[in-house]
Simulated assay, not measured.
Amino acid sequence: MKIKAYGIKEEGGKAEPFYYERSVGENEVRIKILYCSIARGDVQFISNDWGDTKYPLVPGHEIVGTVEETGSGVTALKAGDLVGVGYQQEACFACECCKAGNEQFCTQQKVIGVHCYGGLAEHIVVDNRFAFKLSPALHSAKSVPLLSSGLTVYTGIVKAQLPANSVVGVLGAGGLGQLAIQFLHKMGHKVYAFSHSLEKKEMINQLGAEFILSSSPGNLSELDKKFDFIISTLNVEYDLDAFLKILKPQGKFCVVASPLKKQSISIGLLYDYAQRTIYGNYVGSRKDMVEMLDFAARHNIESMVDVMSFSEMNEAIEKVRTGEVKIRLVLKNQE
């Protein structure tokens, strides 16, 4: 089948019509795309910030659509099912990681932007094991960011194995941060959100967190050894040491985004009268995805989104690039 997509042919280029051939294999499904997000990560792929973008690039790693065709070996999905697709599209299912249920670490995996085309298209064909059926409780447009951002922060939080009623912090209140706040709040923890934007205070409070203005150094010094857990969703430089100091002696610090430049750290803060932990998290497994979507549906967790049409894709990309959009931007396929 010839798939109509919208590709970027060179570093920093504009999206324009792009066609490619793709048949439906035995274990694959063809999905009619309804919604596709344009996230900061997509813009960084367009700019080749990480140096591994393959052009022509079809961005869009958070997708919601309906199944149109299934391969002969597909039994879990049928035509008409509403599904979500995230960053990862394939895994070998034979390596050590895959056998352990950690297919997100498969060395043979294929991900959007590096190995395969994404959701800025009329259709997409993926392995059915990476197309996840969505509950009717999840609003289609507002559920789109769950497929990557939601999965990433949820998995990072679960890995911390936090005791009940923990004191937790979220650095940043963008797409990742807003979802992290909601997950932590609905899990029953006391949530603080750090942001340099005072105008986000009301939104942060509505999501279930107490706002702390991170641009004021005094606000951090008053919180010495207060936090059980902090998750950083920041992609700009920040004072890592300052936040390690406000962790309890056995506190945990999870990183799900980072500046392009190296961050400095005082290693002594991890072990000096302490046993603090820093760890990162890369998306999540298929099991994590199912659990996250179920948790989101049960607790009415969704993203604040601005919806634009596919015809406005280049305007949308520019808005994300310049930071004009303060919430997640989702494109709706009108065709």
Rank of each mutant, 00 (worst) to 15 (best):
E10R: 06
S285D: 11
L184V: 08
Y6H: 11
L269G: 13
S140A: 13
G174W: 09
L146A: 11
G113A: 11
T155S: 07
N219D: 00
Q250L: 08
Y273R: 10
A100I: 15
V85S: 13
T107M: 01
I204E: 05
V29E: 15
E202T: 09
Q161W: 03
E21L: 01
S148Q: 02
Q334P: 04
L260D: 06
E69C: 07
S195C: 09
M308E: 05
L269C: 14
G175C: 11
G60K: 14
P145G: 08
K110H: 12
N165I: 03
V290L: 07
L213I: 01
I38K: 06
Y273P: 02
K133V: 03
Y279N: 02
G208Q: 07
Q206E: 09
H196L: 12
Y20P: 13
V256I: 12
E69W: 07
N219A: 00
K142Y: 07
G169N: 01
G284I: 12
D241T: 09
E291T: 14
L179E: 05
K225E: 14
F243Y: 15
F18Q: 12
V126D: 10
M203S: 09
Q275G: 04
M203I: 08
E69R: 11
L244W: 10
V144Y: 07
Y271M: 06
I46M: 15
R286T: 15
A15Y: 10
G284T: 11
N300S: 12
G13H: 07
E96R: 09
Y238L: 15
A296E: 15
L82N: 10
C98M: 04
G41Q: 03
F295Y: 11
Y279S: 03
S303N: 01
I124W: 04
A296L: 03
V170E: 02
I157L: 13
M308K: 10
V64H: 00
F211L: 01
R298D: 13
E90H: 12
P145F: 03
L162F: 11
V320I: 11
E318P: 02
V74H: 01
E10L: 00
D294Y: 09
A173F: 11
I46H: 04
L162W: 04
P59Y: 06
H299I: 02
I267F: 12
A274H: 13
Y282A: 14
V125E: 06
V111Y: 02
A257I: 14
D49Y: 02
